[in-house]
């Protein structure tokens, strides 16, 4: 079954993403959360994920560093990484591109677009857009 990992140091944002992605659980998708980059990497090394929602500014290991490690690892490089961040400047977007981020979404984001992206990656159709 597909798995999504939500990585953000803000519990409110983790909670929000879990609720937004709830419709995918009906399709057997498993949601997991991590509060920083180190815990996220432990989880990704332990089990296989299809998508990671990754914040940038986090203690211990930031989102760029996590992405770089994942994308440089043959076992993990195919995981689709959605960077979800308040940093919307061109320089940040370029940095994300350089470390291999697949999709860059700036906070505050459009829920329909976010769900649409996940639907496309997992090839699942939820009822959100109906």
């Amino acid at each position: 079954m597909p798995k999504i990992l939500i990585v953000d140091d803000d519990p409110v944002i983790r909670n929000l993403l879990e609720q937004i992605l709830e419709p995918f659980e009906e399709h057997g998708v498993e949601l997991m959360t991590a509060e920083n980059g180190v815990i996220a990497l432990e989880a990704v090394r332990r089990e296989r994920f299809d998508i990671i929602f990754l914040d940038v500014m986090m203690p211990k290991l930031n989102g760029f560093e996590v992405c770089k490690i994942v994308k440089n690892d043959n076992e993990m490089k195919d995981i689709y990484i959605i960077m979800l961040t308040a940093k919307g400047q061109e320089v940040d977007k370029q940095k994300a591109k350089d470390v291999g981020v697949d999709c860059y979404i700036t906070k505050p984001f459009n829920i329909s677009e976010l769900i649409g992206t996940v639907e496309k990656v997992l090839d699942i159709r939820t009822t959100w857009g109906d």
Partner: peptide, 17 residues
């Protein structure tokens, strides 16, 4: 601006939910 974005994300997101 960056600091405002995160709480605004929660407000908009939870309202839509």
């Amino acid at each position: 601006s960056h600091e405002l974005r995160t709480p605004l994300t929660s407000i908009r997101g939870f309202t839509e939910i």
